[in-house]
């Protein structure tokens, strides 16, 4: 209850979530209004400026930009969400193991996270992506998730460490409750806000890595995403040729996604810290 009241009062979080939902809605409602078949290469006359026939114009390869956006936005969001979920699942599991069970597990997991954070994500991703035969949306998500687990691991580990010192955990332990049950019933519910915050961070870093890889031309070749739209626009010199309707929509959409994520994460941060004050 308190959680939801906190959410409804949190303007930053609400604004971020609303913006993301609006973008997701483009993917749901867009195909009903726009013929997504026009996002295929050569389906319309190339290089048309925005007009009555093509509200956002067309690119040099003969795609309707409007249709391309309707296809690309859900793909981009799907990669980010999927990679964020995978990263959070792995990071949460490792973080709780390290924080609750300590000992060797903690040492190994912490070192692994530290090492993985030192190696620049983009470098490893470039290496993997250049060696993959054909890139698809789900594969992209899995690859990017491989480097989105470190921050969740660290945050959740630190929080678990502090939670396990609480007296109610001691009470549970003295009552003979097993380790896994304590984690499930005592620790996990109290981690909820941190898990939410880690999720947003994981999605953000996954999205950043995705867009970066795509800018280098390593994104999915057959599925359109915002980053790939930008890559093709850059590849064909759309910016200096004055085809602004080609590169501006993906730029605006990418900027919106990242600003929404920033707002959501700042909002969640505020909530997490408020909780800290109340509990502490």
């Amino acid at each position: 209850m308190r959680f939801w009241r906190g959410v409804s009062r949190n303007k930053l979080l609400l604004a971020g979530a609303a913006l993301l939902l609006a973008l997701a809605l483009v993917g749901v409602a867009g195909p009903l209004l726009v013929d997504t078949g026009l996002a295929e290469i050569g389906s319309v006359r190339p290089r048309q400026p925005p007009g009555p026939a093509f509200p956002l114009g067309t690119d040099t390869q003969g795609r309707d930009i409007m249709a391309a956006m309707v296809v690309a936005i859900p793909h981009t969001l799907a990669i980010g969400l999927l990679a964020g979920l995978l990263g959070l699942a792995a990071g949460g599991l490792l973080g709780i193991c390290a924080g609750y069970f300590r000992g060797v597990a903690d040492a190994v997991i912490r070192t692994a996270a530290d090492v993985a954070m030192t190696i620049p994500a983009i470098a490893v991703l470039v290496l993997v992506a250049t060696n993959v035969r054909s890139m698809t949306v789900p594969l992209m998500a899995v690859i990017v998730a491989g480097l989105a687990w470190m921050y969740p691991t660290r945050t959740i580990r630190a929080q678990t460490l502090s939670l396990r010192q609480r007296s109610y955990i001691d009470v549970a332990r003295l009552n003979g409750v097993g380790g896994f049950r304590i984690v499930l019933t005592e620790i996990l519910p109290n981690l909820a806000p941190y898990i939410a915050a880690s999720f947003v961070t994981a999605v953000g870093s996954a999205m950043l890595a995705t867009v970066g890889l795509e800018a280098l031309g390593l994104g999915p070749q057959n599925d359109l995403t915002l980053g790939m739209m930008l890559y093709w626009a850059q590849y064909y010199g759309a910016v200096l040729r004055g085809l602004w309707w080609w590169w501006a929509p993906p730029v605006v959409a990418i900027a919106c996604i990242f600003m929404a994520l920033l707002a959501a994460s700042a909002g969640l941060d505020r909530m997490v810290n408020a909780r800290l004050r109340v509990d502490g």
């Binding site: 950043l208 867009v211 970066g212 800018a215 930008l230 730029v251 900027a255 994520l261």
Partner: peptide, 8 residues
């Protein structure tokens, strides 16, 4: 602006 990737 800090939310937007550098290259965008």
């Amino acid at each position: 602006l800090s939310a937007v990737p550098y290259f965008v």
